[in-house]
Amino acid sequence: MSGQIIDVNASLSRWPLRRLAWDEPAALVAELRGLGITQAWCGSFDALLHKDIEGVNARLAEACAASDGFLLPFGAVNPMLPDWEEDLRRCAELYQMPGIRLHPNYHGYTLEQPVLAEVLRQATARKLLVQLTVTLEDERMMHPLLRVPPVDCAPLPGVLTSIPDAQVLLLNAVRTVPRDLLRRLAVEHGVYCEIATVEGLGGVANLLEDVPLEQVLFGSHAPLFYPVAAVLKLKESALAEAQLAAVTMDNARRLLNPQ
């Protein structure tokens, strides 16, 4: 391992259902640094249930600004709220965020609703990367009062056909999005994914049989998951040096700084 890893799937603040060991920014940064991670793209767990999304994004931006560039903020946009366009504008203009993070299942809309296409259009116009979180925890063990099924990504190819320049990174998609659909999204629509929920023996290598190498990124889903899991997944797959470099660093860099 080169020790140069960009983690594209981390979160700040409190998971609603339990305290986590690394739910303070300093603790998260220390843990990730210890694993060789040099940058983490963060949303906020607060965005799941809070209605004051601007407050959530302001705190996220402030915490990331205090991390000496280690934490990169991806603000939330909830298009079910009035004037969500202003949240998106602030993410881009006020906080200079590189992207936004969507939670369609927690915010109560499906991908076939026209509002998703509108979010993607406006984000794309502002050159924002869109992280779309498919799921956060195993549906089988959710709290009975907080049952949130994974996002159904079946409509996504149709949506992306009309917005071909959209840059979409699916979070926690592997194992939940059907394999054929994930392959189609990657190959035909340029969608990216990350490895936090990869499973099975040599799972990352298996994923690379479906998704082009250039579109697979390192993600830990920290602090909800033990972040070392993603590092060990790289080890289990015995990737070639070039594959490792692409997954851990090069693809994420290119995504943030397109030619």
Partner: peptide, 18 residues
């Protein structure tokens, strides 16, 4: 829990624990 899971994700539960 091989083959449903991976050595990696399950070892992490121990190696990553405080």
């Amino acid at each position: 829990d091989i083959g449903g899971r991976s050595f990696a994700s399950q070892l992490a539960k121990v190696l990553g624990a405080r």
